[in-house]
Simulated scan of single mutants.
Amino acid sequence: MYSQTKIAIPIFQSKIDEVIEVANDCINKGADILEFRIDALENPDFKQIKQTIEEINFPMIATNRISTEGGSFKGSEKERIDILYKCADLVDYVDIELQSDDEYINMIHDTGVKTIVSYHDFEKTPEIDEITYIVNKEQELGDIAKVAFMPKDLDDTLKVLAILSHCENTIAISMSDLGSYTRVMASKFDSPITFAAGRDVTAPGQIDIETMRALLNMDLNIMD
């Protein structure tokens, strides 16, 4: 049986024509869903963003990441949220950070789009109790919880697997090469989505899409 975990590929390009080119390349390589990193665009304009989403015409996560969580959006918080809100009717998921104002998260969730409420820490991995608190808060506000942490040792990566084993509708990632295996193991815990690299690595430890797909389905013919 093929893995039910969807492979998402971030599209992190600064120009619209490059977004479309890379998106099509990733689709051809086997992506299940694309993450449109709107914050990577030089001059995010909603009219162009809408046209781009419609032209690509593929399952998509709209993400407009803030700088404190690894993003590049340079406008105001109101402008950032307004773009995500307008994208809600065009995409399958909207990713919005937990540190965003609850009012903004609720506003996007109330559109009916599936929301991924996310939290990233590029410095460390908290203790399991703290991670559990973060995930529970995310699930109270949205549909899917997402956490990504930087491990300092193997024990930190095991904390992420513990979260995956106990929390439904959760994307949990241990970053860097040390934690890259958690991206593959996500499918064993029925995580809805895992992230792989297309042309660009957008987070430490991402595995290229071809390798990820092979690893997720390597036991397909084990009983043949």
Rank of each mutant, 00 (worst) to 15 (best):
F36Q: 00
F36K: 00
F36R: 00
F36A: 00
F36L: 13
F36S: 01
F36H: 00
R37V: 00
R37H: 00
R37P: 00
R37Q: 00
R37D: 00
I38C: 05
I38N: 01
I38F: 05
I38D: 01
I38G: 03
D39H: 03
D39C: 06
D39P: 04
D39R: 04
A40V: 00
A40S: 14
E42S: 14
N43C: 12
N43A: 13
N43T: 15
P44H: 04
D45A: 10
D45S: 13
D45Y: 09
D45C: 14
F46D: 10
F46Y: 14
F46A: 10
K47H: 11
Q48G: 12
Q48D: 15
Q48I: 09
Q48W: 11
Q48A: 09
Q48H: 13
Q48V: 03
I49D: 08
I49Q: 09
I49P: 10
I49R: 08
I49G: 08
K50Y: 12
K50R: 15
Q51T: 11
Q51G: 14
Q51C: 09
Q51Y: 10
T52R: 03
T52A: 12
I53S: 11
I53D: 09
E54R: 14
E54P: 04
E54W: 06
E55G: 01
I56D: 08
I56T: 09
I56Y: 08
I56F: 09
N57K: 13
N57E: 13
N57T: 10
N57D: 15
N57Q: 11
N57C: 12
N57L: 11
F58V: 07
P59I: 11
P59G: 07
P59C: 07
P59W: 04
P59T: 10
P59M: 07
M60D: 01
M60N: 02
I61L: 05
I61H: 03
A62Q: 01
A62P: 06
T63D: 03
T63Y: 03
T63H: 02
N64T: 01
N64D: 05
N64H: 01
N64M: 01
N64S: 01
R65C: 05
S67Y: 03
S67E: 13
S67I: 12
T68L: 06
T68F: 06
T68M: 03
T68V: 08
T68I: 10
E69M: 10
E69W: 11
G70M: 08
G70E: 05
G71V: 09
G71A: 08
G71H: 05
G71I: 11
G71M: 07
G71T: 07
S72T: 10
F73A: 07
F73L: 08
F73D: 06
F73R: 06
K74R: 15
K74P: 07
G75P: 04
G75C: 05
G75I: 02
